[in-house]
Each structure stands twice: as C-alpha cells, then as structure tokens.
Design a protein around this nucleic acid. Structure first.
Ligand code: MN
Ligand code: MN
Ligand code: MN
Ligand code: MN
Lengths: 222, 222
DNA sequence: AGATTCTTTTTGACTCCTCAAAATACCCGG
DNA sequence: CCGGGTATTTTGAGGAGTCAAAAAGAATCT
C-alpha cells in the first residue's frame, strides 16, 4: 500500500536516525533522497497525517512505531536482496546497492522468505550491514572504526558504512571486505592519514574520513 | 526511461497482437490493463507521440519497431523471472505471474543476464510461454489445443495460455503441466465438454473454453 | 433509411510527487 | 539586542496517470 516514495522516505529516516540524532532534519533527508528541502517538508507532513512519522516543525522528524515497521521491512528487503545478488548471482558488491534500491519495493513477503531461506538466514549483508529480522529487530552494534581503534592490534573488518560504487570498488581491490584481517600500523592525525597492513594486500594508506567508514573489531584468537 | 506504466501498455499491445489481430483495440487494452477506455485512448496518444506505437484513431494500435523492442525486453524479463521463481525459489506456478508483473519493471539487464545463465538459458517459462531472446526474437509457434486436436492420439502439453491463479492451481492438481502426457478420449461439442486421460491423474473433463487454453503437440516416440 | 447499441474520444477533475522561488523562523556572533 | 546567514516552510505550478461522464462515431438491426 505504501508507495515506493513513501517507503524510501521512511527507510531513510530510519537510516539517518540510526547513525546520529533521533530527530532527522529536513535537510539531511533532502540530501539522502535527492530532492529539494521543500519537497521533504511537504511529504513529511503527508506522512505525519498518515501516522507514519512524528513531525516537530522546524526541528525534525522521527518514525512512529507504524513507520518504523514499514522502514524495517523495506530495509530487510534491501539487504536480503543485496545478499542474494552477491552470493547467488555473483554480482559485484559495488553495484548491488543500486539494484536493491528498486527491488526493495517490489519483493513480496513470500519471495522474501524464500530468498532468506535460500541464503541460509544471513544476519548481515555483503557490506556487513545487519539485516532486520522478520520480527523487526535490528541489531545495530557499536564498533570502532579504523580511524578510532587501537593501533598495532590484529583486527577484523565487520562492516563498511558506505554504498558509493567507487569507494566499494576501491575497497575490494585492496582486500578491505568484511571478514578481512588487518591492523593499523600508523595514524597521523596531522596529515589525516591512516596506514594499514592487511593480510591479503599488504600496506595501504587511507584518509581519516575513509577510515572512519570502516568498522572493525578485535580479532578473536586465530 | 520508460515508466512501468508505459512498459505495461507496450507489453500488452504485444501480447494482444500475438494472439489475434495485428491491430489492438482500445477496449481490449483497457480490459487487459484494468483501466477505463478513456485512459487508454489518452495514453495511446502519448505513446504515439513518443514513437512507440502507431495509432489509427477509431481502429486500434500497433507497435512501432521501437515499441516492440521495449515490449520484448519487458516480456523477456517477465518470463525469466517467472522461471526463476518456480525453478529456483520453488514457488507455486500459479502465483508467479503476479510477482513477475512487478519485478519485470525493475530488473536490470545485468541481473537479467545472470538470471538467464543461472537458469541455463531456458527458452520457455513454467507455463510453456516462449522467452524472447536477448536479441528480441520471439518464437511463437502455432499449436493445436485440447479443443481442436485429433482425439485418441498420444499428446504432450506444451503450453498453458492462462495466468489466472485459480485455473493454474486446478491444472496443476490434475497434472496438466507442460510436458505432461495425455490423450483426448472424447469431445462432445453439444455439451461443450472434452474428456481426457492423463498418464498421471487419470480421467478428467474440461469445458471447451478451458481446453482451448491448453496447447498440445503429438507425442514423439516414447 | 432510421433508430438503437457499442466503442472510442473528449473534457474536466483529481492524486501523487516534484521543483523554483519567495516568505518565514531560527541561531549565532558582535 | 540586532543583523546576517542558514534551515525550513509556504506558495504556485507542472508532469504522469487515472476516472466519471458527456460527446462523437460506427456498426447493427428492423
Ligand atoms: Mn528504494
Ligand atoms: Mn548494504
Ligand atoms: Mn507489469
Ligand atoms: Mn508465464
């Protein structure tokens, strides 16, 4: 019943509130959805009328329980589809986001369940993003990033917070995939540079900004 | 670039002209698309302006080469998706048409190619409908139907010309699937009844209308 | 032919989503 | 406390697709 547009608005409210304030600004939404701010204001008012969001004029917007339900369902579809495209169809992980952006709106619950089963009920997608459960639980753990973690310790990548094709392609070429083992060998805050050593591809330098997009955890006993 | 709506219009013009006149009436299109005839007239004029169809006012509409290209591409997506849903996800063949109706508009060419490969480049979908090739060739062979074929001869079902859920579910329950072997044991034109004997499910009676939807060919040497 | 019926086209209106540009409210430094 | 700058909201308009109802055209029957 919710149109693709509505689903996209709700999904992005969820995404933006996951990674930041509980109140999402019109500007941030406009940027994420690639529309002008006036459009967002208008749509948000409509969504509020339908009880999908709570709008605090001039301050921001927040999902209602109903809106959150929809958003989580769309996000689940998005991430399961991405997983399918990479794991089954062997598509490049840098390209699946775009595809999933469309498919998330036309996958029925039945197809979703079967995909989920086919994939073995994964709990993260190819980028390490957690997949909401059927029941609407979203495990969003807090991890260190390559910009903030302790240096000189064995780490494993758990998630890449980025969906731009270029970044992902670059990351893949340098072995920076979820599951990869590496450690930070140097961090120069003045230069804004982080140097890593991966098991697979040797030594790499990243900007702090880029490093901040890569989530890691301490490597458990090998 | 073509919207889902445009794609649906073009696909149905193709479908309707496959199975009948070369000129498709507004009324037939309205029925197929589940909109009111005035809407079709309006849309058809717009499509004609874009060079996708040729409109002969008061008589009907026909695809241009451009329109046919689009229609075939949508149809290829539709039928490959149906095949995927049945063969890989093991969905009920009576339900896949509805799903494909949406998915056909959001499958990229890249995903399509990979699906095609995964499925082993099938040339018909689960209902026996021919899948247009990548190059846009659509093999549409003329077959006899259970209402018109010779009786008392071994036959094999090649195609079911029907996508209604109820009909397909019923057909499946009686073993009337593409590939099934059977023969016509009696045909009573007065009563409008055809009686069959299938290898799998024994003796069944069908209305002439229903029998006309089931395409068959003479069974080759067993 | 004349009247009746069916199909197609036209007209006017509506929903959904969007933008450009103007108006408004808010925040922050001086 | 005032002036600018920034974010948000409002306003007016337009594209895409649809319907209801009226008008027009064709075909069919008597
Ligand atoms: Mn989307
Ligand atoms: Mn992802
Ligand atoms: Mn469709
Ligand atoms: Mn089919």
């Amino acid at each position: 019943m919710a149109t693709s547009t509505v689903e996209n608005y709700l999904k992005h409210v969820l995404l933006l509130s996951e990674s930041g304030e509980t109140l999402v600004s019109m500007g941030a939404l406009a940027l994420a959805l690639d529309v002008v701010p006036g459009t967002v204001t208008t749509m948000v008012k409509a969504l509020a009328d339908e009880g999908l969001v709570e709008h605090q004029p001039r301050h921001g917007v927040r999902l209602t329980p109903d809106g959150r339900r929809v958003a989580l369902s769309v996000l689940r579809k998005h991430r399961l589809v991405e997983t399918f495209l990479v794991n089954v169809l062997k598509m490049d992980w840098s390209k699946v986001h775009e595809e999933a952006e469309q498919l998330e709106h036309v996958i029925s619950d039945e197809v979703l369940d079967r995909l989920d089963a086919l994939l073995g009920h994964p709990d993260t997608d190819p980028h390490g993003d957690p997949i909401p459960t059927r029941q609407g639980k979203l495990k969003s753990q807090v991890y260190a990033t390559l910009a903030t973690c302790v240096a000189e310790r064995p780490l494993r990548i758990v998630r890449i917070l980025e969906q731009s094709e270029d970044f992902l392609r670059y990351a893949e070429q340098n072995g920076l995939l979820p599951g990869a083992a590496l450690q930070v060998t140097d961090r120069n805050l003045m230069a804004g540079l982080v140097t890593l050593k991966t098991d697979a591809a040797g030594s790499i330098a990243l900007s702090l900004a880029a490093a901040g997009r890569i989530l890691v955890e301490a490597s458990k006993a090998s």
